[in-house]
Simulated scan of single mutants.
Amino acid sequence: MTGDHGHDLMFGALLEPPADRPQDVLALAELMEAVGLDVVTLSDHPYWPERLDTMALLAAVVARTERITVMPNMANLPLRPPTTLARTAATLDILSGGRFELGLATGAQQMWDLIVAEGGPRRNAGESVEALEEAVRIIRALWTSESAVSFEGAHYQLAGVKPGPRPAHDLGIWLGAYQPRMLRLVGAVADGWVPSSPFLPPEHLPAANRVIDEAALEAGRSPGEVRRGYNIEGRFAPDSGSGSGSGFLDGPPRLWVEQLADLALSHGISAFFLYRAQSPDVIRQFAEEVAPAVRGIVAAERGSGAGPA
């Protein structure tokens, strides 16, 4: 089982602001920075006109903040070509002084009709994984190559594309993945992994982590090279005095602290994002009553000599 890989802990939120309240995301992002959170992320559904464009919003967040990291959670590959993603990500990283990370996913299978309607391709599950692997290779090449980039893949072809711009820092690519083939891709090529707890509950983390770890080793990598994130859905509830809540992240802050610290130490999760956060009060409570306590427990455990697995 994957244990603690020793990464610094990060806490943030996945925001999903409606288009009719365009300033909400900016206000929440500023709040997140003010209360000491580390990462603001936005979901990406380009085919929904009731949502504002994710990359444009992230640019606005970058302009309104000074410290916090920003990331799409996750960018929709079928409607965002890898060459465009590479340049957009690098640009936002440069403008932010190295505060951008790229989250990337294949697009939800149930959304293919909407993707095709917007001019995107229709891909089956296997083709989606192939396209994602090709995209990661292309994006990294455009960030790092000293010469023109050519690529001949099943889904993408480049004929001597000029690379650049270069990101301001070693910009990570995080993948959203649930099925074994996608999880193997995470282990082989990704810098980070972010599932969501409603779709991958904590009891399924060990099996998914094993697939990632095995794929990393097969690719000649250490499993610790893949950071593990988690979009966490929960509810702050009054303390019943019984010592426990009714389930995962359903109870008082101390329950959240215990459960998230266990995820960090036992399952290698080092980035926690509130899932679909819209309440300033919940964001403040998460930042003030949960994040510092989880950091304290994990730091104490690491200091005791347990160390990364």
Rank of each mutant, 00 (worst) to 15 (best):
L158S: 10
E214R: 08
A177P: 12
W112N: 05
A56G: 07
E16C: 11
D113R: 01
L58W: 00
G245S: 09
S197P: 05
L28Q: 15
M10K: 12
H155R: 02
E289S: 13
A131K: 01
Q109M: 07
M74C: 10
L77E: 05
L200F: 05
S242L: 12
S43W: 07
A207K: 02
D20Q: 11
M74W: 04
V161P: 08
R276I: 07
S196W: 09
P195S: 04
S270T: 13
A105K: 00
L52N: 07
A306N: 13
A264R: 00
A135Q: 14
A154S: 15
R21A: 15
D93R: 02
R67Q: 14
I115Y: 00
R80T: 11
Q110T: 12
D20C: 06
G3C: 08
L95K: 09
S266R: 10
Y156R: 02
V257G: 03
L15C: 04
S304R: 15
H169R: 15
A90H: 04
G187W: 02
V189Q: 02
R166V: 14
N209C: 15
D44E: 11
E101H: 10
L79W: 07
P22G: 08
V189D: 02
N209P: 07
P308G: 15
T83G: 11
M182W: 02
S266C: 04
P72Q: 03
L171V: 14
A207W: 03
A63D: 06
A299C: 12
A141Q: 08
L52H: 14
D250M: 05
E133T: 13
L58R: 03
D44N: 13
A141C: 05
A287V: 12
S304T: 13
E133I: 10
T65Q: 05
G224C: 10
R210S: 10
A108I: 00
V39A: 00
V116I: 14
A125N: 05
R221N: 04
E33D: 04
A86C: 13
G229D: 00
A287Q: 06
R221M: 02
I297P: 07
T144Q: 05
T2V: 07
H204A: 03
F248R: 01
D239C: 03
T65S: 11
L92S: 03
L102N: 06
G97S: 11
I94A: 10
H5S: 06
H267L: 10
E30M: 08
A216T: 00
A27Q: 13
I269R: 01
E233W: 14
G241H: 06
G172M: 04
H267D: 13
W143F: 09
W143H: 09
V194S: 09
I139V: 14
R181M: 09
D281M: 07
E130R: 07
H45I: 02
E218C: 02
E218G: 06
Y47C: 01
S196L: 12
L102T: 05
T91G: 06
F151T: 02
R184H: 10
Y178D: 05
D93Y: 04
T144P: 09
A300K: 15
W174A: 03
A34M: 07
S242D: 08
E218T: 01
